[in-house]
Each structure stands twice: as C-alpha cells, then as structure tokens.
Design a protein around this nucleic acid. Structure first.
Length: 153
DNA sequence: GCCAACGTTGGC
DNA sequence: GCCAACGTTGGC
C-alpha cells in the first residue's frame, strides 16, 4: 500500500464535491505533466491519497480518498472542446492517464500548508520544496502518519 | 543540442 | 494582481 497527495483547486473540484458524486467516486482527469502522470501510473487500487486544496484562501490537506481504479486513458485529452485538450494524445495512442478516486473522509480540520511547512519531519516533502508544482506526489508512510496526527492538534 | 520566449502553477 | 519557478516549444 502506498500513499499519495493530489492537488485540486476547490473552486473547480473540492473534497466536498467528490462526496456528492455517484458512488462518491470521480475520475482524476486533466493531469498534463509527465511526472505527475507517472506517479498516477504507479498507483494501486486501495492506495490512499490526501486531497489537497490549492490556489485558495487556506491551502492544505482537507480530506482522504482511496484509489478506486488504476491508471487508464484520460479521454478529455482528445476532446477539442476540453480545456485540457492535447492534440498529441489520440484514442489510438493515448498520452495522458487518469485514475478514479473514491471519497473516504474529510479531515476533522484541515492540515494547512503553513502547518506542514512548520513541521521539520515534513521538510523533505516535494510539496514544500522550492518551486515544486507537482499536482500528484508520493507521501512516505512516515509522512502520512505525521500528517494524520496533525489533524488532531 | 542550445536557449529564449512563452504559458502555467500556486503561494502570497 | 504579482511574481518566482518550472516545463514546454520551436527557431537556429
């Protein structure tokens, strides 16, 4: 079992939105970065991920989701109407993948980016590295447990 | 293969 | 809205 962190702008798609979806499940589409895509390809069904809200008043971790389906082609990449359209990807040769995530729970209170930055045990997370913009990133078991404890403080 | 220009991300 | 950092593109 591996752990991950996935970013979303809550104005576009939040943890609360996920909870309202049928079966509380949604495709994680729109990823157009190779490194993030490769992390999604490494995800296994049953892996857990933190749901991170970015570009908002209080950036941070707001919930937990479960990987419900492993990586498969992202059809929004070959839809010219889609904001994330990429003509390099075709149904014959898909370039971009997505996974399905299922709502697990919201955190009792958010673990904010400020809290994460203030914790020395988390200083190696790509999230807090200078200039890191990865929208999907791995979390070690140790970091996962540290972050879970911070939910209660 | 280099590198300038450009677009995007995302915190502040 | 600003801007730093990064990835991508495309001319040469």
């Amino acid at each position: 079992m591996n752990y991950w962190l996935m970013k979303s702008e809550p104005a576009a798609f939040s943890i609360a939105d996920l909870q309202t979806r049928p079966k509380k499940t949604e495709h994680w589409d729109g990823v157009r970065n190779y490194q993030a895509r490769n992390f999604m390809r490494a995800m296994k069904k049953g892996d857990l991920a933190f749901f991170y809200h970015s570009s908002c008043d209080v950036p941070g971790i707001y919930g937990i989701v479960e990987i419900n389906r492993e990586a498969y082609p992202d059809p929004t990449a070959w839809d010219p109407e889609n904001h994330h359209y990429d003509p390099k990807s075709t149904p014959e040769r898909p370039l971009w993948d997505m996974v399905d995530v299922r709502f697990q729970r919201e955190l009792k209170r958010p673990v904010t980016l400020a809290m994460i930055k203030a914790n020395a045990a988390l200083k190696h997370m790509p999230l807090v590295q200078r200039g890191s913009r990865l929208s999907v990133l791995p979390v070690t078991a140790s970091e996962w447990n540290t972050l879970l404890k911070m939910e209660n403080t």
